[in-house]
């Protein structure tokens, strides 16, 4: 038997907020999440913005698009909305891309689907199949870097003033912990919401779900019936998985620690930023012209690294026909 909602006391509960232990009905869960998402959007969006949502078709980016559309309809601000989906070329992505198309049609949002192969001359499936055993990076790492490059480039081409991503509280916290472990203070300083970009070529990113736990976003997506893919990428490996598990265990022992940690780290970052202690300078990549902190951007570094492995040129727009079997 379903308990009644701890807030309204009228409807059946569908979800437990683990931070507070409250059981909420779908309507109260929507209110809870809407309040937090709107508080972020109130801060980071500006009148006349053109927001491109990086829409993978998974639950988080789908909910992000849904909430942005709803926020716009509540006429709190005039801004344009579009979605970009990168097809990385793995069979796993088919369902998610179909869900992304379904959602954008449903919401009436302009949707652009671009293939990684068209931009980088290689797909993630090919990277995965050609990487030698025990190579120093996983296909997952290449995928993330190459995808970010495409999203920034396509968003800029579309005239976007902001890129909205589906990063939730868990994602943000994991990234902070990984940056801390690497001692990468500049990366932490860059990671805030809608931080002014030091380069006109870098479209500022916003994370509307940054205050929402992944499981709460998932429950709301299911409750609202938003078309979205629920599934784990079979290529996932790396440090993030371990950090995620460790944080989940910590949360079991100390409920609410995720929010406390995220708030604490954000507060440190904002102090570092306001003290002017970290300045990030961006220049143009010598090879592709995209913004980078070094001489050559990460995407070009990775393509150079992959060239001897796939035995063809990946830079300067070379594509599939050159021995891609």
């Amino acid at each position: 038997m379903r308990p009644l909602c701890d807030r309204c006391g009228r409807r059946e509960a569908i979800h437990t907020l683990r931070a507070s232990g409250e059981n909420l009905c779908g309507n109260c869960l929507l209110q809870e999440i809407r309040l937090k998402v709107y508080s972020v959007l109130d801060r980071v969006l500006e009148e006349g913005d053109r927001v491109a949502v990086a829409l993978s078709g998974g639950k988080d980016s789908s909910l992000t698009l849904y909430m942005l559309k709803e926020y716009g309809e509540h006429a709190r601000l005039n801004f344009e909305l579009a979605a970009i989906t990168v097809d990385e070329g793995t069979p796993y992505r088919r369902t998610a891309i179909e869900k992304a198309s379904e959602l954008t049609k449903l919401l009436g949002v302009n949707h652009r689907i671009v293939a990684m192969r068209d931009y980088h001359g290689i797909s993630v499936s090919e990277i995965r199949s050609k990487l030698p055993a025990r190579w120093r990076r996983s296909a997952c790492t290449y995928c993330g870097v190459l995808r970010r490059w495409i999203i920034n480039s396509v968003a800029r081409e579309m005239g976007a003033t902001k890129v909205a991503t589906g990063h939730n509280l868990d994602d943000v916290l994991q990234t902070h912990i990984m940056n801390l472990a690497r001692g990468d203070v500049p990366a932490m300083a860059r990671s805030g919401q809608g931080v002014r970009s030091p380069s006109p070529k870098m479209v500022p990113r916003i994370k509307p779900l940054a205050l929402i736990r992944e499981r709460d976003a998932a429950a709301l997506t299911l409750y609202l019936g938003i078309p979205a893919h629920f599934g784990k990428c079979p290529l996932t490996t790396g440090m993030r998985v371990g950090v995620r598990r460790a944080l989940d265990e910590l949360e079991l022992a100390l409920p609410g620690i995720k929010e406390d940690l995220a708030n604490g780290i954000e507060s440190v970052i904002s102090r570092v930023r306001s003290s002017g202690g970290v300045s990030v300078e961006l220049r143009e990549c010598k090879l592709c012209g995209e913004p980078t902190t070094g001489e050559i951007c990460k995407a070009c570094q990775m393509k150079l690294e992959l060239e001897p492995i796939v035995q063809r040129t990946l830079l300067f727009g070379s594509t599939s026909s050159e021995g891609s079997s």
């Binding site: 993978s56 980016s61 994602d171 998932a218 299911l222 784990k232 990428c233």
Partner: peptide, 18 residues
């Protein structure tokens, strides 16, 4: 309750990195 149909949904997707 008797006859309930239960399914599990994994919420960890690890497919963002944007």
């Amino acid at each position: 309750s008797q006859g309930d149909r239960v399914k599990f949904v994994k919420v960890t997707v690890h497919f963002q990195g944007v």
